[in-house]
Design a binder for these strands. Structure first.
Length: 593
RNA sequence: CGGGAUGUGGCGCAGCCUGGUAGCGCACCUGCUUUGGGAGCAGGGGGUCGGGAGUUCGAAUCUCCCCAUCCCGACCA
């Protein structure tokens, strides 16, 4: 039994100044966590109870699916990550350190390499597969900007699983089993989620889906179709490619004097206010223009390469989408010095003429997939103050390829069915993907198949953010008064509050009730504090968020048989009085329906 | 990485502009009163003001550097 009189807990009346998002605010105010380091938190008794409940649910579901738990060190030597290429690829987000002899170590951000090597160490036959193993482990990432409390820390706990199969069909089966296990896990955790198509990011790999809790403070943007089941992280959205357009009758492109039009808006205004440039049928819009963005790609080894991206002028380049496309390289702005070094690029007037591997600049030029052959554009003429009108893709210029980097907007067409999509934000709580043979190849994980032939194992990788899930649940389950934990992960089932002055019958009655509940298997948080006003107790109960609150107060008299207590459902706020004599059975049934 | 804001007892803040040796609310301790919605009165303990250097007779306050936290941004051709 948790007694408030002795519990290591201090609730705060005021919000901590550095906490923005509700989960961070309420977890600190409620005495669940304390900040201990930038991006690192201490779990206090109540928080640790919640954390362990989340961990328990995850572990139970992993075990039920037949996956086996192992545990690696978090401190690892450089060599395996060197072999996989990630010592370099992971870049500055990797915590690196040295031992006293100067050997390089790292604090693991994920454990693909170690799992791969462990299986290589022990297994060598197809008969040993399939295999899925997992761990629940503290991970370290030197985030540039830790934020939002538990949602993005530099030290966090992740459950990561890996599957090992001889062939693609096996991998698909392992992937599906994990997907099912994740559905059950998040259902039990009481977390709302959307499963979206995703890109696999720095880990490499192919088929990939994310579990996103649809909450506005989340860092991921995803789209979902308003009529079909399509849902995808914006990074993974593929725009529907229109059919080529005929252009035999298209007039030749013409260079026009467009002084003072370095931006799309100034260009469109100029075109619509000069008679010789006006369209006969309608006004020009930003969508008629082709915007060319030049940037620098910085590769993990430090080398750089310029890249030009062409998008319809009414859309911005979405850096998140671009980053996902060019990973592990990182896009950077093309700064003044870079422009100065390339006089062939007229800032504000860059057109396809100066771009492409075959052009004077030699800069690789990738365009939005909507820019198909036959589409006509107004775009830069590569001279300050000049644009080209009627430039036809496929006739006047041919890009080096396409890239998914244009922003996605509410109302864009669904790639699956064509209906409008809507944008929403979410917290990534799980990510499953088919790694394939990247790590097995790099680290030499092979087995002999039934013909005695050596085959490279194919892998899947599956993660759940355990500490983040605690915050995500807090985000999904709170109100203006405080937290409202789902019962499965709450620190207790019933919060018994004594609401009476000392010396009355309420104290002893509450003591007996709490003990009886405990004996019946109900987890009790007992507010037995004396000298604390009921107002404080009620506020604390609401802040702490135990699902059921039992108030032992004025309904209790010296005649226990006619005494009543008040039961309040934290989430709905519904209250009801029940006979004290029936309380244990009533509350027990609430907890184990 | 860039920009902005902030950094003063456990928490939230004032003081800084106009230098003179630190204050308020909450929390904490003692006593009395109070007890169905963050109680009242009285008395108390706790900080040298993120760190360093400098200016000055004197620095929380002015100057410089560093660190940290939070927010915003990272390209618009």
């Amino acid at each position: 039994m948790l007694r408030m009189s002795t519990l290591f807990l201090r609730t705060l009346r005021d919000d901590p100044a550095d906490a923005e998002v509700p989960s961070h605010r309420l977890l600190v105010r409620g005495g669940y966590i304390r900040r201990a380091a930038p991006g690192g938190f201490t779990w206090l008794p109540l928080g640790w109870l919640v954390y362990r409940n989340v961990e328990r649910v995850i572990r139970e579901e992993m075990d039920a699916a037949g996956f086996q738990e192992v545990h690696f060190p978090a401190l690892l030597p450089r060599e395996p990550y060197e072999a996989s290429g990630r010592w370099v690829e992971y870049g500055p987000n990797l915590f690196r350190l040295q031992d006293r002899r100067g050997n390089d170590f790292l604090l693991a951000p994920t454990h693909e390499e170690m799992f791969t090597l462990l299986v290589k160490d022990l297994y060598s036959s197809y008969k040993d597969l399939p295999l899925s193993i997992y761990q629940i482990q503290t991970k370290y990432r030197d985030e540039a900007r830790p934020r939002a409390g538990l949602l993005r820390g530099r030290e966090f706990v992740m459950k990561d699983s890996y599957s090992f199969d001889v062939d693609d069909e096996g991998l698909q089966r392992s992937y599906d089993r994990h997907r099912d296990a994740y559905v059950r896990t998040f259902d039990r955790l009481g977390l709302p989620y959307v499963i979206v198509a995703a890109v696999s990011g720095a880990m490499g790999g192919s088929a990939s889906e994310e579990f996103l809790a649809p909450i506005d403070v989340g860092e991921d943007t995803f789209v979902r179709c308003t009529s079909c089941a399509y849902a995808a992280n914006v990074e993974a959205v593929e725009v529907p490619v229109p059919a080529d357009e005929p252009y035999d009758d298209a007039p030749p492109a013409q260079v026009a004097d467009t002084p003072g039009t370095p931006t799309i808006q100034t260009l469109v205004d100029f075109l619509n206010t000069h008679d010789e440039l006006r369209r006969p049928d309608r006004d020009w819009t930003a969508a008629d223009t082709l915007k060319n963005v030049v940037l620098t790609l910085r590769f993990p080894d430090g080398s750089t390469e310029p890249l030009a991206v062409g998008v319809p002028g009414d859309r911005d380049v979405d850096m998140k989408r671009l980053e996902a496309q060019v990973a592990p390289a990182v896009p950077e702005a093309f700064d003044e010095a870079a422009f100065a070094a390339r006089p062939e690029l007229a800032k504000g007037y860059i057109g396809p003429g100066a771009l492409g591997t075959g052009s004077t600049s030699g800069i690789r030029y990738l365009v939005d997939p909507r820019i198909v052959a036959g589409t006509r554009w107004v775009t830069g003429a590569d001279t300050v103050g000049h644009h080209v009108v009627g430039l036809v893709a496929g006739r006047d210029f041919t890009p080096d390829g396409t890239i998914e980097a244009a922003e996605v907007r509410d109302g864009d067409s669904c790639p699956a069915c064509g209906s409008p999509v809507e944008l929403a934000r979410g917290i990534e709580i799980g990510h499953i993907f088919q790694l394939g043979r990247k790590y097995a190849e790099a680290l030499g994980l092979t087995v002999l198949d039934q013909h005695g032939k050596t085959v490279t194992v194919t892998m899947g990788s599956y993660g759940i953010g355990v500490s983040r899930a605690v915050a995500a649940i807090a985000e999904a389950s709170h109100d203006e008064l405080g937290l409202c934990w789902p019962r499965e992960i709450a620190p207790a089932d019933v919060h018994v509050v004594v609401a009476a002055k000392g010396g009355g019958p309420q104290g002893p009655a509450a003591e007996r009730l709490a003990a009886a509940l405990e004996a019946a298997g109900v987890r009790v948080l007992f507010d037995d504090r004396e000298g604390v006003s009921v107002g404080v107790k009620f506020k604390d109960a609401e802040l702490l968020g135990v699902p059921t609150i039992a108030v032992v107060g004025r309904g209790v008299t010296d005649d226990e048989s006619s005494s009543t207590i008040e039961i309040k459902d934290r989430r709905s706020g519904d209250r009801s009085d029940i006979a004290l004599a029936d309380a244990v059975e009533h509350l027990r049934s609430l907890c184990a329906p």
